[in-house]
Design a protein around this nucleic acid. Structure first.
Lengths: 234, 234
DNA sequence: CGCGCCCTTGACCAGACTCAATATTAGTGG
DNA sequence: CCACTAATATTGAGTCTGGTCAAGGGCGCG
């Protein structure tokens, strides 16, 4: 599972930076913001880079990950649109950021952002949400079985289900088609498993009639409640 | 490993709340702050409680943990003095907080804190540091072996070693005596292991001459570099 | 159509867990 | 201060989950 030979896309090239843009953002009013369009699997920044920018994900998906010296990788966060990433305590980024899909990010100047009172509330809000997600993920990594991890992962993609206030299946059918945006390897590195284990668990869920695979990255959950019961959280 | 029968100390009793105090705090100037003295293994708050207070740890140690319905526990953070905890995105605490040792906390009003511009910088700083620690911990939980986890845990207690800029052993001897403040069970729940595995790893390190046990919660590391090499991080 | 990249599957192995017994420590009361 | 007790930690034996290694399959793209 060594990643030393991993290709990191064209991060250095700063592709297609544009001054104007259409996407909405909390920071739209601010002056020196730029948006940047990135292809799939482009690096946004690397662990150890000077952290003088903060990013807002406008569109697409980004993962944050860390590597151990021997190449083991742990995906520590998957960033969703409208979230901020690249906010760190020290002078350097503490992890790597790479797009999962073609994405649009807004680049903010760290100094400017930290100086302005205007956005402190929004920044803090993002950080608080991030911390709660990291807490949940710690439980998953520390205490859940492979089945529970994969089931939990799949439930992330089902809106309004498996969360406090979930009403169970509506309108009869308990189905949901989900788009993964992550390869098996990325899922494995997110869930602290190997690619083989992820694959086996998914195959097993298929065998049990809980899901069917429409494409490698497109899964039809045919029994959302059944999968939810396997998450270990209920 | 069921915790349903777990005793939670005297959290409801709000023991010994005092208006005046000696300990230093960023928030000392603020008006309505109170300090509270807590015994060992007192609960500070529970998951699901209304989160209308923020806490600053003045002295002692606090752990944050989550429970799965079947009783599995994951310690998601160990809070050190001067850090804030109990800052959440929603209306309810997302985890439980319990003292590890007799502690002193300062109680801050959440509304007041969020309203004041004065402390936003300090709050955001605490959150950013917290996130970096959670990233590291995700790597530990997702990708490290039992030996690496325990070694990483022990190194937490050695100041200025195993971090960027570590100079290796100074003044000849490479020793350090550390106070754990956590039981084996708490360590296990923090590291995503069982109590038996933690015990076995520590015994093995002892057998290999890397440490000796002076008391259950007091360990002499006799070869800090040797333990550092086992963390997987170098 | 064929190549390459993922993904899946199988067989085997190893690290960590479970269950159970014992040892140690810390705390209590005489 | 010591004996007793309860709580905590250690150790052992056996099991099982998930990892490793290796082979085969399928999909998408040129």
């Amino acid at each position: 599972m060594a990643y030393s030979d991993r290709a990191f896309g064209n991060a250095g090239a700063l592709p297609q930076t544009t001054g104007a843009d259409a996407a909405w953002s909390t920071f739209a009013r601010s002056q020196r913001v730029k948006t940047q369009r990135l292809a799939e699997h482009d690096a946004v920044f690397y662990e150890g880079d000077p952290a003088d920018r903060v990013y807002e994900l406008i569109e697409g998906a980004v993962m944050l990950f860390k590597l151990l010296p021997d190449g083991r990788r742990q995906v520590v966060e998957v960033v969703a649109p409208n979230a901020l990433f690249g906010i760190v305590a020290g002078a350097l980024y503490d992890c790597n950021a790479e797009t999962l899909t073609p994405s649009v990010v807004r680049i903010l100047d760290r100094r400017e952002l930290e100086a302005s009172n205007e956005y402190q509330g929004h920044v803090a809000e993002c950080l608080r949400e991030q911390i709660e997600r990291l807490h949940d993920h710690a439980v998953l990594l520390g205490r859940k079985s492979a089945f529970e991890r994969v089931a939990s992962f799949l439930m992330r993609f089902v809106p309004k289900r498996g969360v406090p206030g979930c009403l169970g299946p509506q309108n009869g059918k308990d189905e949901q088609v989900i788009e993964l945006t992550m390869t098996r390897q990325e899922i494995a590195d997110y869930l602290g498993l190997t690619i083989e284990t992820v694959s086996r668990v998914i195959s097993d869920l298929k065998r049990r009639g809980l899901l069917s695979i429409e494409r490698q990255d497109r899964i039809r959950l045919t029994d959302v409640c059944g999968i939810c019961r396997l998450t270990g959280a209920h």
